[in-house]
């Protein structure tokens, strides 16, 4: 299985990948603070039993502009795709996630899942989630979810009233929120990210 970690703005990310029968791909994309980028990836599931597991996290804290376009195309039946993208957006930064799940005619027994969640740290930050589903087969299991939360004054006060200092309260929520993606990273990178939170 090809398992890769890409740092956006630093590593070359393949723009298009085709997976043949029973091939697997496991990618984690990381966008660290201070990185503005426009990333577009196209994953083609071209043979039965192909499986892709995509995850990503982005930390945009000041004035970054990030666009993530992820197209997952189920051209063959019997394939599975997972997507989990999580972001923290603060300052005047903006982050947009465009996620397309395409299921071709006759691509039966497709399983496709997509999740994109963001937390805003300021009222001037922007997070957009634009999921798109194009499904031309009928025997398909497909789900997508998108949320944008706000780490606001009420949440902070609630935690402080339980004795958690303001700085720790912010960190606690950010780290917990990112945990499902952080778990996929090597310890050193994980520690780097946690220290940025």
């Amino acid at each position: 299985m090809a398992s890769s970690i890409y740092i956006i703005g630093k590593d070359e990310i393949p723009a298009r990948v085709s997976l043949k029968e029973n091939e697997r791909l496991d990618w984690t994309l990381v966008c660290l603070p201070g990185t503005s980028a426009d990333v577009s990836i196209d994953i083609e599931l071209d043979g039965p039993g192909a499986e892709v597991d995509l995850a990503g996290l982005y930390l945009c804290r000041t004035d970054e502009k990030l666009t993530l376009k992820v197209n997952v195309r189920h051209n063959s039946g019997g394939c599975t795709s997972h997507q989990l993208f999580k972001g923290i957006v603060g300052g005047q930064a903006s982050a947009a996630f465009d996620g397309l799940i395409y299921v071709a005619h006759g691509a039966q027994k497709t399983k496709a899942y997509q999740e994109n969640h963001s937390i805003l740290l300021s009222s001037t930050a922007r997070a957009e989630s634009r999921p798109q589903l194009e499904i031309y087969a009928d025997d398909v299991e497909c789900s997508h979810g998108a949320t944008t939360g706000f780490l606001g004054e009420d949440e902070l006060f609630y935690m402080r009233s339980r004795g958690i200092p303001e700085k720790d309260a912010r960190r606690l929520q950010i780290i917990s929120f990112l945990a499902p993606v952080l778990e996929r990273l090597p310890e050193e990178l994980r520690d780097d990210i946690v220290s940025e939170c």
């Binding site: 009420d154 949440e155 958690i164 606690l172 929520q173 950010i174 917990s176």
Partner: peptide
């Protein structure tokens, strides 16, 4: 009571008591 998404009760209470 306020919702704290992403933070489990366990983690919340542990952080609170230890702080």
């Amino acid at each position: 009571p306020i919702e704290i998404p992403g933070v489990s009760i366990t983690n919340f209470m542990k952080t609170s008591l230890n702080a």
